[in-house]
C-alpha cells in the first residue's frame, strides 16, 4: 500500500517538476511513516530534472537536415512515379503477351476443329 502510494506521489512530483511547480511539503504531508524515504527520492528526481536540461541543436544542422530531407522527398516522389510508369509498361506488356498466347491457342483449337470437319469418313 505504502509503496503504491510512493509511486503515485513520485509520478505527481515528476509532473510538477516538468511544469516548474514544486511543492514537496504537500506530498510529504500525505505519507505518515515514509517521509524521509519520499523526501530523498524527490530530491533525486529534482536533481535529475535539473541535470537533464534541454539542449539546442545548431541551427545550421537543423536547416541542413531539413534541406536534405526535402530533397529526399522529391527524389522519393519522382522515383515513385517512375515506378508507377514502369509498372504500367510491364502490365501492358504482360497483357499483350497474354492476348498473343490466347490468340495462338484459339487458332490451334480452330484449326484442329476445321481439320476434323474436313476428314472424309470411310465407310
Amino acid at each position: 500500500m505504502e509503496e503504491k502510494m510512493l509511486r503515485e506521489i513520485l509520478a505527481l512530483q515528476a509532473n510538477d517538476l516538468n511544469a516548474g511547480e514544486e511543492d514537496p511539503q504537500t506530498y510529504l504531508a500525505m505519507v505518515s511513516g515514509q517521509q524521509d524515504e519520499l523526501e530523498s527520492l524527490m530530491t533525486v528526481a529534482a536533481r535529475v530534472k535539473q541535470a537533464l536540461l534541454p539542449v539546442e541543436p545548431s541551427s545550421a544542422f537543423v536547416r541542413s537536415l531539413r534541406r536534405s530531407l526535402l530533397a529526399m522527398t522529391g527524389r522519393k516522389r519522382s522515383g515513385a512515379s517512375l515506378l508507377a510508369k514502369r509498372g504500367l509498361l510491364i502490365g501492358a506488356a504482360a497483357l499483350g503477351s497474354a492476348l498473343s498466347v490466347a490468340g495462338i491457342i484459339a487458332y490451334v483449337v480452330y484449326a484442329r476443329a476445321n481439320a476434323g470437319a474436313r476428314t472424309p469418313v470411310h465407310g
Partner: peptide
C-alpha cells in the same frame, strides 16, 4: 510508474 520508482531508488 513502477520503473520510475525503481530507477530513482537505483540512482
Amino acid at each position: 510508474k513502477s520503473l520510475y520508482h525503481r530507477t530513482l531508488l537505483a540512482l
